[in-house]
Design a protein around this nucleic acid. Structure first.
Lengths: 164, 164
DNA sequence: TTGGAAAGTCAACAAGGCTGACATAAAATC
DNA sequence: GATTTTATGTCAGCCTTGTTGACTTTCCAA
C-alpha cells in the first residue's frame, strides 16, 4: 500500500498498519489470558482474582489503596475479590505498624502456590513467543507497549523495571 | 537464535523479563481500550459492541457464524449485542443469496460513522506509540504479538495481513 | 478535638459472559 | 420425498465483575 512520505518509509504509520496493530493486540491479549483462565476455572476464580494475586505477589505488603490505584477499579469491586481470597486463605491482611488504618496484603503459602501456577502458565507462553522471535523483537515489543500505556500506568510499570 | 546460555545473552528469557512482558501487556491493553471506552459511554455501548462493529467493518458481508468464531463468544451473547446494533440502525442483516439460512452483516452509514470515530481514537494512540519508537520496534511488537496468539486466532489475523 | 484518610460493608444495578432448551427455515443427504 | 444437519434466533436463568451511593469504624494529623 503505497503512500506519500517520500522514499524513507513512514509506511509503518499507515492506517492499514495501525489497524493491524490493533487486531494484533486483540488476538494476542486473548492468547495471553487463555492459559490462566483455564487454570482459574479449576478453583472457581476469575481474572479479577488473578490480577489481585499477581500484584500482591509483585509488591508484598502493598496497601489496599495502592492496589486500587494499580487495578483501577472501585474499592467495592476489589473488596469483593479480596474478601474471598482472604477467606479462602490465599491472602493475608496485616494491620499497618506505622499507620494502623492501613492493611498490608501478602500472599500466604497457598496463595503463592496458585500465583506460581498461574504465572508459570503465562510465562510459558510468553517465553515461547520471545524465544521464537528473538531479543530485538522483544525490545521493540516492550517499547511499543510502554508507549501505549496511559502516563500514570507507565509509572506503575516503571516501578517494576527499577528492580532490574 | 543463539542458545546455550554462555556469555551471549539469553537474559531476555529470564523470569524477570517475562514478568515484565506480562505486566506490559496488562497496562498497555488498558491504554489500548481506554479511548474507545470513553467514546462508547456517550452512546451507552460497551466493548462488546465495539468488537462487533470492528469486525463487521473489517469483513463486510461476514456471516454470524464467522463473527462468532472470530469473537469466541456464544451466539446468545453475540446476539444480544447484534440485536441492539441492528435495532439501533448501525448494522444491517441481509439474507444470504446462495444460502438463505445465512445472514450477512454490514455496517450502515450510521454504523460506519461510529466505527470511524472509535477507530480513529484507537489508531491515534497506536500512531503516537509507533511514531515514538520507530519502525523496527513496531516490527518486533507485531512479531511477538503474533507469536503469542492461539494458532486458530493467528489464522484470523493473517487473513487481514493478506490485504497488504 | 476535630477533620480527613484508609478501609470495610450493604444494597442495588448493569454489562456481558455462560448453559440449556427450543423454534424455524433452508440446505444437504439418504 | 423424507430425514438430518446447519444457520440463526430467542427465552430463561445464572455468574462474575464492574458501577454508584450511603454509612461505619478506626485512626492519623493538624
Amino acid at each position: 500500500m503505497v503512500e506519500g512520505g517520500g522514499s524513507d518509509s513512514l509506511l509503518f504509520l499507515t492506517d492499514e498498519q495501525l489497524k493491524k496493530g490493533i487486531e494484533a493486540m486483540f488476538f494476542a491479549y486473548r492468547g495471553f489470558t487463555a492459559d490462566p483462565d483455564r487454570i482459574l476455572e479449576n478453583y472457581a476464580y476469575g481474572r479479577a482474582h488473578h490480577r489481585a494475586i499477581h500484584f500482591i505477589n509483585r509488591s508484598p505488603q502493598t496497601t489496599v489503596n495502592n492496589l486500587l490505584s494499580i487495578l483501577g477499579v472501585t474499592k467495592q469491586s476489589l473488596n469483593r475479590v479480596l474478601r474471598r481470597l482472604i477467606d479462602d486463605g490465599l491472602v493475608e491482611s496485616r494491620v499497618g505498624k506505622r499507620d494502623k488504618r492501613e492493611r498490608h496484603l501478602v500472599l500466604t503459602q497457598k496463595g503463592a502456590a496458585l500465583e506460581a501456577e498461574l504465572s508459570e502458565a503465562q510465562r510459558s507462553r510468553m517465553r515461547a513467543a520471545f524465544r521464537a522471535v528473538g531479543p530485538d523483537a522483544v525490545t521493540g515489543f516492550r517499547q511499543v507497549l510502554e508507549a501505549m500505556m496511559d502516563v500514570d500506568m507507565r509509572h506503575h510499570f516503571s516501578l517494576l523495571k527499577e528492580t532490574e
